[in-house]
Simulated scan of single mutants.
Amino acid sequence: MPRLRRPFQTGRRGDGYGLGLAIVDAVATAHRATLTVFARPGGGLSVTVKFPS
């Protein structure tokens, strides 16, 4: 999963350009938020961003 946070990294199918999670990670880092990414058992990803209060 950490690989998917880097620019131009895509999932198994290679769809898209692989910028989405890299952008989300940069925004989360800039706002001191935590980004959690994990594979769902049925396929796909679960992505959670928690901002500090």
Rank of each mutant, 00 (worst) to 15 (best):
residue 43 G to N: 03
residue 37 V to F: 11
residue 21 L to Y: 00
residue 38 F to G: 13
residue 10 T to N: 07
residue 28 A to K: 01
residue 29 T to F: 03
residue 52 P to N: 04
residue 17 Y to T: 12
residue 6 R to D: 15
residue 1 M to S: 13
residue 11 G to Q: 09
residue 25 D to Y: 01
residue 52 P to H: 04
residue 29 T to W: 02
residue 6 R to N: 15
residue 47 V to I: 09
residue 13 R to K: 12
residue 34 T to Y: 07
residue 23 I to F: 06
residue 32 R to G: 09
residue 33 A to K: 03
residue 16 G to N: 09
residue 2 P to K: 15
residue 46 S to M: 07
residue 31 H to W: 07
residue 42 G to H: 08
residue 40 R to V: 07
residue 31 H to I: 07
residue 18 G to V: 02
residue 1 M to K: 12
residue 33 A to C: 08
residue 44 G to T: 03
residue 13 R to A: 10
residue 29 T to G: 07
residue 44 G to C: 05
residue 18 G to N: 05
residue 10 T to D: 06
residue 7 P to E: 14
residue 33 A to Y: 01
residue 19 L to P: 01
residue 18 G to Q: 03
residue 3 R to D: 15
residue 33 A to V: 02
residue 15 D to C: 10
residue 33 A to H: 01
residue 20 G to K: 02
residue 43 G to H: 04
residue 42 G to F: 06
residue 43 G to E: 00
residue 3 R to S: 15
residue 15 D to G: 12
residue 24 V to K: 02
residue 20 G to N: 04
residue 11 G to I: 11
residue 39 A to R: 13
residue 53 S to V: 03
residue 5 R to C: 15
residue 42 G to L: 11
residue 29 T to D: 09
residue 14 G to M: 04
residue 36 T to V: 15
residue 1 M to D: 13
residue 9 Q to V: 13
residue 26 A to N: 05
residue 53 S to F: 04
residue 22 A to F: 00
residue 10 T to Q: 11
residue 41 P to H: 08
residue 47 V to E: 00
residue 24 V to D: 01
residue 22 A to S: 06
